[in-house]
């Protein structure tokens, strides 16, 4: 195994197998993956900070076996921040907190291409900072139907007084976030809210939307996965890479941008490779910044 040592903010980090091509059919080495995360760090770190990271590791590349790791690996350097997360039956789990650049580089070096975090911070694991609507198109529906659903959802939420933000999933779907950032938020309420919204959408657009997880129901429809609003679930972080055939990023979009993409009708234009994601962020700033800041209250709950 080849190793390279780097010094970063006083921390010494050992990087391995930098030349390994983790996206073999595309040609994207671990060195380039680390480079991407280093450039995007100022934008992704706020969304990872103080949240229990779930690693999704692809040690042999995206076309080989992967594994999830909720536990922060025991061989971690001393400077990796962690948090004890309460589990069922009174047990605790030590999770990594990606609060700084060197920890980000360390987890990416473990071939954790995808970075998944809960909707709540580690210090308040039962308090969601946002409601999420995970929109997942079931074939033959694609991201175009998905964007139509997202735009209807935005209008509906705005009519009940809620601002929302959208990002691509980095695969075929879209994620709509409603920031709350309030002490009194609970998963019980965010789940009930998202489910009720999903059911109203289905009632009015039964051919386009389903709130039902059953495979049969999802064929040709957009599944609004409201059940992601749970303390035990995680979402792919904004700006994380996805382990698809091509390296694509979960990228925040402006609503007007989504309207324009929806009008153009080309599903491929919803894909953002790492270079695009970096350029967009550096030019326009973090379009998801409000998700971490904006305070809102769910109506009629």
């Amino acid at each position: 195994m080849s190793r390279t040592f780097v010094e970063m903010e006083g921390a010494r980090l050992s990087l391995s197998n930098l030349e390994k091509d983790l996206y073999p059919s595309y040609g994207f080495t671990k060195a380039r993956i680390l480079q991407y995360y280093r450039r995007i760090a100022p934008f992704i770190l706020p969304h990872l900070k103080e949240r229990a990271l779930t690693l999704k590791r692809y040690p042999e590349g995206v076309d080989k076996d992967f594994f999830y790791e909720k536990r922060c690996p025991a061989h971690r350097p001393v400077w990796v921040p962690t948090a004890a997360i309460p589990q069922d039956k009174g047990e605790e789990l030590t999770a990594c907190l990606v609060n700084d650049l060197q920890t980000l580089m360390w987890v990416v070096n473990l071939a954790s291409l995808e970075l998944h975090v809960p909707l709540a911070r580690a210090s308040s694991p039962d308090r969601p900072d946002a409601v999420v609507f995970d929109l997942d198109p079931g074939e033959p529906a694609d991201i175009l139907q998905c964007s139509r659903v997202a735009l209807i959802l935005r209008d509906l939420l705005s009519r009940v007084g809620l601002a929302s933000y959208v990002k691509t999933s980095g695969r075929k779907g879209l994620h709509v976030f409603v920031p709350l950032n309030r002490q009194d938020a609970t998963f019980e309420r965010t789940k009930m809210f998202s489910k009720t919204v999903a059911e109203t959408m289905q009632k009015h657009y039964p051919d386009l939307v389903t709130p039902n997880m059953a495979k049969q129901e999802r064929i040709g429809r957009v599944f609004i996965n409201w059940s992601q609003n749970s303390a035990s679930k995680t979402m792919i972080a904004a700006y994380s890479l996805r382990a698809g055939e091509k390296p694509l990023v979960s990228v925040p979009l402006g609503w007007n941008e989504l309207e324009e993409l929806s009008r153009q009708g080309d599903p491929d234009k919803f894909s953002f490779p790492p270079a695009d994601a970096v350029r967009r962020a550096e030019e326009r700033g973090d379009l998801f910044a409000e998700v971490l800041k904006k305070e809102q209250t769910l109506p009629h709950m």
Binding site: L156, R159, V160, M192, K195, T196, H204, N212, M301
Partner: peptide
């Protein structure tokens, strides 16, 4: 379990919004 109805006021507000949107 999924047929459990949401809070009546929320359901009414969403219905009303959906109607005016359409």
């Amino acid at each position: 379990p999924s047929e459990e109805a949401g809070p009546p006021d929320l359901v009414a507000a969403l219905e009303e919004s959906m109607r005016t949107m359409k």
